[in-house]
Design a protein around this nucleic acid. Sequence first.
RNA 1: GCCUACAUAGCUCAGUCGGUAGAGCACGCCCUUGGUAAGGGCGGGGUCAUGGGUUCAACUCCCAUUGUAGGCUCCA
Length: 599
Amino acid sequence: MADQQHTEHDALHRIRHSAAHVMAQAVLEVFPDGKVAIGPPIEDGFYYDFDLPRPLAPEDLVIIEDRMRAIIQEDHPFIYQEVDADQARQLFHDQPYKLELIDGLAAGGVDEYGEPVQGPVVISTYQHDKFRDLCRGPHVSRTGELNPAAIKLLNTAGAYWRGDERRPMLQRIYGTAWETADDLELYLERMEEARKRDHRKLGKELDLFSLEPDLLGGGLVLWHPKGGMLRHVAEAFCKEEHIKAGYDLVYSPHIGRANLWETSGHLGFYRDSMYPAMDVDGMEYYIKPMNCPFHILIYQSRRRSYRELPIRLAEWGTVYRYERPGVLHGLMRVRGFTQDDAHHICTPDQMPGEIRFVLDFCLHILRSFGFEEFKAYLATMPEKHVGEPEQWQAAQEALREVLDRAGLDYVVDEGGGAFYGPKIDLKIRDAIGREWQCSTIQFDFNLPERFEMEYVAEDGQPHRPYMVHRALLGSLERFLGVLIEHYGGAFPVWLAPVQVVLIPITDDQLAYCRDVAEQIRMAGLRVEVDDDRDRMANKIRKAQEQKVPYMLIVGKREVAAKAVAVRLRNGEDLGPRSMDEFVRLAREVVDRRSTELVL
RNA sequence: GCCUACAUAGCUCAGUCGGUAGAGCACGCCCUUGGUAAGGGCGGGGUCAUGGGUUCAACUCCCAUUGUAGGCUCCA
């Protein structure tokens, strides 16, 4: 809904909105008894929801699309008219969904999304040809302004009426519409590009991970050796950075007794997302959905003085959460995942500094992985909340201040915080412009209270500390999924599971290759020798497909010269290089975590 | 969880009207030792997701279950 505000009067917005109306007419021509719900423009296109006597088949879309082209060519004007509620009810007497919308407008002043209408409530309709829709516009002036070659119906989907899962499931048709056929073509290419980068596809092709829903269970990930290496490198880098930044690494078990989860409140408000209890020695244990309670126990293992604060406890903690079957999706939405989780426990005085630190650190980590563009969301105190308003104020101030200071683009979601504290969510923008939420920095006024966390201050008295919960990459699974798509599987050298492949031209160079590989391995690079009985060209092809950054071709000439011929993943041929030269080159690229193959 | 579609070899996919399955890649063996994206030959490999039903006969039709895809809802 946020984009709509900005694009309300854009040409594309009008085109898409009008295309939705044209589609609705076409659908009603095919299904005269069909009921129409709502049909707004959206990013890249539009949709319209219908209640129809039978499920739509792909063939229906072809027919509807043809009909749409005809309506466009007939060049009907879009006619705007304001009506009062009674007139509207009369006009849409056989359209129950429209009647509900009219009632909402007339009585409560809410629009089709249930949002309050700003300003005076005006009920208006737009008509073109025989189709009249309850609509506030805007539209193009005539159907002929739509480009029939730039419109395409994409797919159908189920969608609840007014997004409420207790209400009827409608049939939604998604379409896309542009000014020109070229724009449509570009959009379809963009979709194709996204499909090529799909981490589920690349995960298989690059042998990174697998999901075995039938054998293992849904939402559970198996990391293969290549994916395991990718993950290891990412984790090892992050852990090193955490240690340098002053975090302490901790480890906690996967299960804990019920009383822990009762104290934390999870059994009260988070139970639906937790796996059922298991019985151990007559006591109930639960698999952890979060790491927080364990870190709090570590904090509470002895009396804490203000002198040792802030305490920063970090853990790559694997948690399990029950997700409804229909929402699981590759690595992006799983049931078992590892968070790069940490809890900052500090005094009120230290709090602003901790926030500043954690955001800077977060950006440093994300940038290291090659992400440059971020969007932040600040969520503030909701109606239902725990903790004192002054605490919230102070925390929100600190969050706001660090966002301003970091010069980040941010959106404030007033009242959008969790009941236990305000938070900043960070989204990263990937190589093809998609946004992914990974990082979150959240205050928690709930758990310190529930666990009665304390530290002894200068006054010798116990005080309640601030606790900030944060995850930077969020879920490792998800982050690696994003990383795979961001790079389309062609990782920067420092992350590539295999950095170097040695390709002997004939078996005569095998021994030399193995010798060279050993030296490269000693230099800390990940190297393989392709000793298959394939031709060199095929070995290059395989390495290319695996997106290995460096291919070292070795024939008679290289052996004689004690060299390797360096071919890059991008097809470039650097020609013969000595071992030292190549190692120096590769090491520098790796050490700088460069996204380039040569510096 | 809901709607729709789909599920055939390790992977990608054919399989007509119901008559118990095929290709390419991958894999194995043999020949080939080839200078920057696929050399050639032969071979192994399937309870057609699972369980029921209809039928003389089911990969094919029907029902259920499981899973996947695209959405919706959800993601304190």
